[in-house]
Design a binder for these strands. Sequence first.
RNA 1: CGGGGUGUGGCGCAGUUGGCUAGCGCGCAGCGUUUGGGACGCUGAGGUCGGAGGUUCAAAUCCUCUCACCCCGACCA
Length: 566
Amino acid sequence: MRISKLFGKTQREIPAEAETISHQLMLRTGMIYQVAAGIYSYLPLALRALKKIENIIREEMDAAGGQELMMPVLQPLELWQETGRDRAFGKGLFTLHDRKERNLCLGPTHEELITKLVSYYVHSYRDLPQLLYQIQTKFRDEPRPRGGLLRVREFTMKDLYSFDADEEGLNQNYHRIQQAYQNIYTRCGLPILIVEADSGAIGGKDSDEFMAITEAGDDEIIYCSHCQYAANAEKAQSLKTKLDSEEPLPLEEVKTPNAATIEEVSRFLKVPSHHTLKAVFYIADGEFVFVVIRGDIEVNEIKLKNVLKCSELHLANEAEVTQSHIIAGAASPVDISNIKIVADSSVTPGVNFVAGANKPATHLKNVNYPRDFQADITADIAKAHAGEACPRCGNQLRVTHGIEVGHIFKLGTFLSEKLGTFFIDANGVSHPIIMGCYGIGIGRLLAAVIEQNHDAQGIIWPMAIAPYQIYLCPLYMDDPDIAAAAEKLYKELIAQGFEVLFDDREESPGVKFNDADLLGIPIRVTISPRTLKINSAEIKRRSEKEFQLVPLEELTTRLKELVSSG
RNA sequence: CGGGGUGUGGCGCAGUUGGCUAGCGCGCAGCGUUUGGGACGCUGAGGUCGGAGGUUCAAAUCCUCUCACCCCGACCA
């Protein structure tokens, strides 16, 4: 490709809109163009890289036994209502209707469709297992698109779905795809960390995320400094401060003027915050919920949402709290009736807590569970923090940020049961098919690669997904000898099968070198009167400072080595 | 949804106590001189100042409404 003809120009200045590096670089190199918040056009350079990523994914999915197919973006809303996931996605689902007023949605993912499809063709254990995948545009109306391609509303995703007759089959496929994913990220030049994850709106049991570790990421990861434990903060567990064992004492009411927050109460009564109980109020699908948790621990709303099995959850506002006759600042689970109480598992083993008394400026000492109050639900709804102890080995937990570039789920049977996707086993007994699903966001993967492969000058493409392999950079193109030599070399390299970006512009050396660095093509080949005089060309890798002079007759051999070594 | 910010040629910005024909840099077009890390000179094209309404002799500038985009938070009573 000749740069003079390439659609899309490089930009010297950083667009004001862009904050993250990958976003800035993709705009400056002319890879993407923003159409609306979280919606982009992909220009030729970006598309070439995206296609390379897609092909790597295809190769690995096929090698793992996957079969590619294609399903529509436009889907009947009814199908989503059947599984109830229209509510799970909530406002994230783009909905529309056709001329006959039939309700449709733009698919945020394709489990419903594939499950229906499989139920049409698969009826016997002999038809299982199946690994089906698609690379498709998906739509999610994200509350806040951000960071260029990091979080968008319209995106290309590879999604593979596994269908098995038993748990063992699911586990095998899960591991097989997990390995294939490792291969994909390695080939794309992207180091990743696998973390335990919450399955969110997709649903299901186990799930693991593939994280590219970078501060630009919008996911928080809790990991152990010692063992292999790593989890998304949405799901992470930790061991909290242990309480001393003591005998339960009788309830005692104390006046606590001007002490409403945990910090104030704790200071006023001279008890550590982990010896207090905090009351937090939520509205879960319209129902008021009283959450009790130890004073030093925060509520993890994702966990709470899962425990409550609700689709919409928010903190109760002042009016909602008052309406439920709760005394803010002195609320207590003791003697509360007709309100659902959820207790964190930190609460039940504790002894002699300080809690509110449901009277203004009054607290209770020596509150004990279950003597003084009971909970409708007791579960782990606690947030894990860096500095706390690892749930596996007890060593210190740390925190970092990452970009979720892949997510795999053991779905189980909830979709197949709802959509009637059953098979007959060898004994003639009917069972729901056991499912798994495995997604990779292609554009986000591309952005993550740039986040991790750049310097102050620009992108440093890994060879496998670079839009071009070689940047042919002749200096002084207004010199007819140079122009002729460059044209000849360009044709030769093309004939040899190289992917060449030919900087055929009559620009100054500075401009050309800077654009070469910005665009980040892995190998730069420079010719000039200086090199031609000694019948040579200069080869420089984008990732290295040094260049080397190579005689023209050895050039293609040398380039082949470099291209194949990555 | 809440909070903060920004909208002025393709990009980055200035101009906003109302006042002449709305500027600057980059980029773009033409000519010339240059040329191993973003050269220089001259000439030129390109803007209903996000949109609507209002105030005024006069609005990029003041008022009202609205739209878009970016950032932060989606949180402890």
